[in-house]
């Protein structure tokens, strides 16, 4: 089953139609756990995106020499390698981010988006298409995590953090400095609630588009 999409369509489908978080509901563990601030959402999205692009590319290159019966172990080795690279790079270059993402970086290994795309797409398509597919999925995943993190952070703590490194940070007090915060939005239930509303909103927009 080779994909019939155009190159651009391959990228766009990951952002809207097959968005990994909002439509496919894949990789929800990191999605729900780390998105208590917008910056954490971006960080997790970019880290996962890097792994996704790397693993899709390699799986697609290696697809003809991988025997069918050991394909899953091979995918896992490729994915785990990229995750470890990301983990090391974060610890070396973005110390604060690696501290706030903590355990969830190594856990990217078991993010179903990545294994899912390797198995369902990269193992059946050309290298270029696999990379485009991964870019789309990565952007879709990052956008979903960013929006989720931003909504939770604004309602939960009244701030919006776009960047943080040492003393430099880009942080807006959206709801004023005296905003007391709504704790539940920072806790896991807030993630479920927000994700539910985001999925509902996506479905409403999609059905409006379909009816036209």
């Amino acid at each position: 089953m080779a994909s019939k999409e155009t190159g651009l369509g391959e990228v766009l489908k990951g952002i809207w139609r097959d968005n990994p978080v909002l439509t496919l509901l894949l990789g929800l563990c990191p999605t729900l756990a780390v998105t208590n601030s917008a910056y954490n959402g971006i960080g997790m999205g970019v880290a996962t995106g890097f792994v996704l692009i790397g693993s899709n590319m390699f799986v697609s290159i290696l697809k003809s020499i991988i025997p069918k019966s050991v394909r899953i172990p091979v995918y896992i080795v490729v994915i785990a390698t990229f995750v470890t690279i990301v983990d090391m790079a974060l610890k070396a270059f973005m110390f604060e981010l690696s501290q706030s993402l903590g355990l969830f970086v190594p856990l990217i290994v078991v993010n179903c988006v990545i294994l899912g795309r390797a198995e369902a797409f990269a193992s059946k398509n050309t290298v270029l298409r696999s990379i485009l597919d991964a870019v789309g999925m990565a952007v879709g995943f990052t956008l979903a995590l960013f929006v989720l993190g931003a909504i939770r952070e604004i309602i939960g703590s009244g701030t919006l953090t776009l960047f943080q490194m040492g003393e430099t940070e880009v942080k807006f007090f959206v709801l004023g400095k005296s905003y007391p915060g709504i704790l539940v939005m920072i806790l896991p239930p807030g993630a479920f609630l927000t994700l539910g509303f985001m999925m509902a909103a996506r479905n409403v927009i999609q059905s409006r588009l379909d009816n036209k």
Partner: peptide
């Protein structure tokens, strides 16, 4: 053969990366 080769290549790449990032971390 395939699994061994791929794991070996992954291991080599990671040890190089580790040597490079360890002092920075």
């Amino acid at each position: 053969l395939v699994l061994t080769l791929i794991s070996g290549a992954a291991g080599l790449g990671l040890s190089a990366m580790n040597d490079y990032t360890k002092p920075l971390a």
